[in-house]
Simulated scan of single mutants.
Amino acid sequence: MAPIPTPPAEPQDSPEGYVGLQAADAERLAQQRGWQVVRSLPPGAVITMEYRVGRLNFEVRGGRVARAWKG
């Protein structure tokens, strides 16, 4: 039987720290801090809710991050 793969560790980073930043600056900073995937979404976007290790989601309003969460 094959071993169960171990997912990569997420950056030790708080999503709340991105709220209020310009979206492009927040994306760049998140990538520098080690997030594998950064997803920017408009308010009310319909998205899947599966949890992906290493992904950071931004809800962007008026060019700024209004909300940020892992997965």
Score class of each variant (00 low, 15 high):
1 M>R: 09
1 M>A: 05
1 M>E: 14
1 M>C: 09
2 A>P: 10
2 A>W: 09
2 A>N: 07
3 P>N: 05
3 P>C: 03
3 P>F: 04
4 I>H: 11
4 I>K: 12
7 P>F: 12
7 P>T: 13
8 P>K: 13
10 E>D: 15
10 E>W: 08
12 Q>S: 01
13 D>F: 06
13 D>A: 06
14 S>G: 00
14 S>Q: 10
15 P>A: 07
16 E>Q: 11
16 E>L: 10
16 E>V: 08
16 E>P: 01
17 G>V: 00
19 V>H: 02
19 V>C: 02
19 V>S: 00
21 L>W: 10
21 L>K: 15
21 L>S: 11
22 Q>P: 12
22 Q>Y: 06
26 A>M: 07
27 E>Y: 01
27 E>R: 13
28 R>T: 15
28 R>V: 08
28 R>W: 09
29 L>D: 05
29 L>F: 05
30 A>Q: 02
30 A>V: 05
30 A>Y: 07
30 A>K: 06
31 Q>M: 14
31 Q>V: 06
33 R>A: 14
34 G>K: 08
34 G>P: 01
34 G>R: 08
35 W>H: 03
36 Q>V: 11
36 Q>D: 07
37 V>N: 11
38 V>C: 11
39 R>D: 09
40 S>T: 12
41 L>I: 04
41 L>P: 02
42 P>G: 13
42 P>E: 14
43 P>A: 13
44 G>I: 02
47 I>H: 06
47 I>L: 12
48 T>F: 10
49 M>H: 12
49 M>V: 10
49 M>Y: 05
50 E>I: 04
51 Y>G: 01
51 Y>E: 06
52 R>V: 09
52 R>Y: 09
53 V>K: 11
53 V>G: 02
53 V>C: 04
55 R>A: 15
56 L>C: 07
57 N>D: 02
57 N>P: 03
58 F>V: 06
59 E>G: 00
60 V>C: 12
60 V>H: 09
60 V>M: 03
61 R>M: 08
61 R>P: 00
61 R>G: 06
62 G>F: 03
62 G>V: 08
63 G>H: 08
64 R>L: 10
64 R>I: 09
65 V>K: 06
66 A>K: 13
67 R>T: 14
70 K>T: 12
70 K>A: 13
70 K>L: 14
71 G>N: 14
